[in-house]
Amino acid sequence: MQMRRWLVSLLVVSALVAGGCSPQETSPSPSDSSSAATTPSASATPVSSPEPANLPRLEGKATVELTVKGGKPITIEVDGTNAPITAGNFVDLVQQGVYDGLVFHRVIREPQPFVVQGGDPQSKDPNFPLEQLGTGGFVDPATGQPRNIPLEIKPEGSASPVYGKTLDTAGIAAAPQLKHTRGAVAMARASIPDSASSQFYVALTDLKFLDRDYAVFGYVTQGMDVVDKIQQGDRIESAKVTKGIENLKQSGAAATPSPSPSPQ
């Protein structure tokens, strides 16, 4: 209980500081953890909501490798079966080279392991202050518009995910299919459910209290020892899709595989 109170206090402060700058994604917010411990009053029968259109989607699974500071690759299995929009967004951004050169700007290990978080495009600029990172998201160069994706959580026993709502807000008692176990990869967002864009985090330990409020879309399958050594300010040297790119669909059409561009 003391550890939980400490996490709540620390992360509420960090979320408020970052969230005051921009409506873009900030951090997993333990202000939602109180609801995670509450049993929904609605029926436990899983329900679904309409799937968003005009966003990349992953139909099946894919494998992504991240290289940080010249170390051995971190391998991530991305699960489009249970999180098609969230997984599709991530794989699409990897394929575009968006993550190449970006910084892990938020690392919390003490007094207990929590997360390492990165993916703010502002961090590609080496002169951008580290302490100001955490508010940026992906802007589509083709349209000049930000790309935000909806909160996407698939309850156990459901045929499809719930979009735009936490499981408690949707009144669903079922647990999520994809859980915050150690090595889980999930999307960071602001307090608005549909505010995730490019920032993601890796769970350094089991974080059950985030399960019902944040979208897990994959798991580190190799290289968790590398994740454990990531420090604030470390850069992603490269991110590439090594398997399953044929499962990425762009607005209903098959994606055209192409090499990821070099960091700018």
Rank of each mutant, 00 (worst) to 15 (best):
K72L: 06
Q2R: 15
S49I: 05
H105G: 04
G164T: 08
A188D: 03
R147S: 00
L102N: 00
N54T: 10
I236V: 15
D120L: 12
I85A: 04
P50F: 12
K243T: 12
P40G: 11
V241Q: 02
I172Q: 03
V241K: 01
A173M: 06
T169I: 09
V241S: 01
T67I: 15
E237L: 13
L7H: 04
T143C: 10
D206F: 05
I172C: 09
A142E: 14
L55E: 07
G70F: 10
D211T: 09
A188W: 03
V116T: 03
A175F: 09
C21F: 14
D125S: 14
K72W: 00
A53D: 11
R189W: 05
L167M: 08
R189T: 02
M187L: 14
Q199D: 06
L178G: 12
T63Y: 06
D211W: 00
P129I: 09
L11P: 04
V216K: 11
R235K: 13
P113T: 11
D92F: 15
G119V: 05
R147I: 09
Q117H: 10
Q117P: 04
R212M: 02
P113I: 05
V116C: 05
G164D: 06
T39N: 11
N148D: 08
G183F: 01
G144A: 10
K69W: 02
P73D: 01
P23S: 05
F128G: 03
A142P: 00
E246M: 07
K165M: 13
A175H: 06
P23V: 08
P257E: 01
L130E: 13
A190D: 08
N127F: 15
G70E: 05
S31I: 15
V162E: 01
F209W: 13
G233P: 03
E59N: 14
D100N: 15
I108T: 07
T38E: 14
L7F: 14
V91H: 01
S33Q: 01
V241Y: 03
V94E: 01
V8R: 13
G134N: 06
L7P: 03
Q122E: 12
N247T: 08
G244L: 10
R147Q: 11
L167E: 04
V17Q: 12
E25W: 01
D168Q: 13
G80A: 04
R106I: 05
R147G: 02
L55C: 03
D79P: 11
S198H: 00
T135Y: 11
A190N: 15
V17E: 13
N247A: 12
V115R: 00
P193R: 07
Q232D: 03
D79R: 09
A175N: 11
I192A: 14
T67P: 00
L151C: 08
R212K: 14
E110T: 13
I172K: 05
G71C: 02
G119Y: 00
L11Q: 11
N127H: 14
M3Q: 12
L7S: 07
S14D: 14
S258K: 15
D234M: 02
F114R: 07
T166I: 02
G119K: 06
I149G: 09
D140V: 06
P121C: 08
S43H: 09
T143F: 13
A196C: 07
P126C: 10
V12L: 12
